[in-house]
């Protein structure tokens, strides 16, 4: 569903306050479409996918790399192997089937990922900050993110908008964006030169929704959270590379229904939303 096509909320615009974190999760969930097969990473994507299933995408097929195909959790899973993901699932596969067969076989429409660092081409880093051999910060590692970014038909990335996270070049390319590592490791090449399809579709942050220019494949601002007081100047300041804001439109604020479902049904405990 395009945000532009969304029917106006007849109950009136939400007048209660909401957070940038909530807007981020809601904005990303709106990018998921009904019927799509969505491979959901751990963390906030679990929340956004849960919300989409309860709003506009009831027949979206939620897939988790470890254990679940068409997952319909009644309670928020806190990892992609959780028994909450298994309950009411149509099939309990292993990673060999989900990743080896479905993802590698080109049957995943959307990869939905979080990350620690993203760059102007949508490369994601969830491995380390600083030098690989002596990092200043070491993270948990790729998990399935690298595979998903390489092999899904498109990826949606969700992460907080901070200058240290939105960088010109990521310290380590865990998951490939539009212009990624050459085989010899010495330069950046367009992903299609390596025979990779797909690519990042959007980066949804705590300030707006970024997309990638069809010609340059660099990130630009598509929507910004004007209703929350976010300005384009703030986005420019929180981004570590030159970002085009000339196409930016204000984001439609959350509907009361979206907020209520998010707060009371999807993540009532605030496991990820940290209420």
């Amino acid at each position: 569903m395009n945000v532009e096509e969304q029917a106006p909320d007849k109950t009136g615009k939400n007048k209660t306050s909401y957070s940038q974190l909530e807007m981020m999760v809601i904005a990303s969930s709106r990018l998921l479409e009904d019927q799509e097969r969505v491979l959901v990473g751990t963390g906030l994507p679990l929340v956004g996918a849960g919300l989409a299933k309860k709003t506009h995408a009831k027949d979206m097929v939620v897939i988790m790399e470890a254990v679940a195909f068409d997952s319909n959790p009644q309670s928020l899973p806190f990892c992609v192997a959780d028994a909450r993901a298994v309950y009411k699932t149509r099939w309990v596969p292993t990673a060999a089937e989900v990743m080896g067969h479905f993802l590698q076989g080109g049957r995943i429409d959307v990869g939905y990922l979080g990350g620690a660092q993203v760059d102007q081409y949508g490369n994601l880093n969830s491995t380390c900050i600083g030098d690989y051999y002596s990092p200043t910060k070491r993270f948990e590692g790729s998990g399935g993110a690298s595979d998903i970014a390489a092999l899904a038909k498109k990826t949606i990335i969700i992460m907080a908008h901070e200058k240290k996270r939105f960088v010109e070049t990521v310290d380590y390319i865990t998951s490939t964006g539009w212009k990624c590592r050459s085989y010899d490791g010495k330069s950046l090449v367009y992903r299609w030169e390596l025979g990779l399809d797909g690519g990042p579709f959007a980066v949804v942050s705590t300030m707006g929704v970024m997309k990638f220019d069809a010609n340059t494949h660099k990130m630009y601002v598509d929507y910004y959270y004007a209703d929350l007081g976010v300005t384009l100047g703030e986005i420019i300041n929180a981004t570590g590379f030159d970002i085009d804001t000339s196409r930016a439109k204000p984001m439609e604020p959350p509907t009361l229904l979206e907020l209520e479902l998010l707060r009371t049904k999807v993540d009532p405990e605030g496991i990820y939303m940290k209420y």
Partner: peptide
Amino acid sequence: RSLKGSDIINP
């Protein structure tokens, strides 16, 4: 088919 373009296989 995975790994291409990632630093995971950067020599």
